[in-house]
Nucleic acid binder design. Structure first.
Lengths: 160, 160
DNA sequence: ATTAATAGGATCATTTCGGTACTATTTCAA
DNA sequence: TTGAAATAGTACCGAAATGATCCTATTAAT
């Protein structure tokens, strides 16, 4: 259904929380605290942060007073990075798997599929869109004027 | 995972088949034949075509020598229409449900969710993108030059 | 030493999705 | 008028993905 999973939602909220000014290098925030702040299941948040840490999006500090902080600036954390960290490459269909030698062969469910190459192109556009949107866009204050990046994307997508 | 379901793949292939020149008002193509052409499960193709018929994208003729034909031109059949016909409105997250009075209330899984409005905006861009792409883009011959619509979208999404 | 935190793995339950089966109805043709 | 070919509709099943939990080990500050 072309839908973000709940995991991604949780991860974005957690990252948005870490982007708040009260979190810094020397004052990380624990997974438990993040989960409590937004009533999210603690074990799940823990696992998601671990995934994000493996991908290099957050840094972890173990032990008492430990926790997580962002590993890079909010405007560097693109949604593609978040999605890839948690559920692998963004691909709207199986035939978009770049690791396959012959893309058309990857589409094993539909022999001689007539639209494989077109689906791949569409996938590129989706990836472009999600690479344009960063954590910074998610945490900006509530105003009616969308962010610069969003405006650019919209202008492009809206033109015809 | 932000992925098209196999149903959508099947539906697109079926529609692409109906767009071929051998199918016309007076010579519809049966669901069974479409399924055979691409080795797709017949009962599933039948159900998908029924959904597409309900949405007005194809017309059906019952009885012997019956079958399906496209109900409109290929460039009028946007991917959003296909997706909506088969699995409902395009919404990348629950909080994108437009039928809800208070969008933020719809996000019942995360109280005081700080990114609901931003997710909705992102959803708008996804919808825009999928509205730009039509069946005509899916069936055009295999050339390296992408279609006009795709070019426009790409130029917009790629700019920064 | 104790406490508080992450790291990692194993596991379970539930929902969704892909797929099947069966019956009714309509239409053409012999 | 009868049979075959097609859609229409519904109910159902199995498997895979997803959401969620539990347990243990390790690390660091007090």
């Amino acid at each position: 259904m072309l839908k973000l999973t709940r995991k991604i939602d949780y991860a974005l909220v957690a990252l948005a929380r870490l982007a708040k000014p009260d979190v810094a290098e020397d004052s990380p925030l624990s997974a438990r605290q993040i989960a409590e702040d937004y009533q999210m299941p603690t074990p799940l948040v823990t696992r998601l942060l671990k995934d994000l840490q493996r991908a290099g999006l957050v840094t972890s500090t173990r032990g008492a007073h430990g926790g997580y902080t962002l590993a890079m600036a909010a405007d560097e954390i693109a949604m593609t990075l978040v999605i890839e960290a948690i559920e692998g490459p963004v691909q709207i269909a199986a035939c978009c798997d770049e690791t396959e030698a012959n893309p058309c062969d990857a589409c094993q469910v539909i022999p001689r599929c007539p639209i494989t190459s077109k689906i791949k192109k569409l996938n590129d556009h989706v990836v472009d869109l999600f690479r344009q949107v960063t954590l910074a866009d998610m945490i900006e204050p509530e105003v009616d004027v969308p962010s610069e990046a969003i405006n650019i994307v919209r202008a492009g997508a809206g033109a015809s």
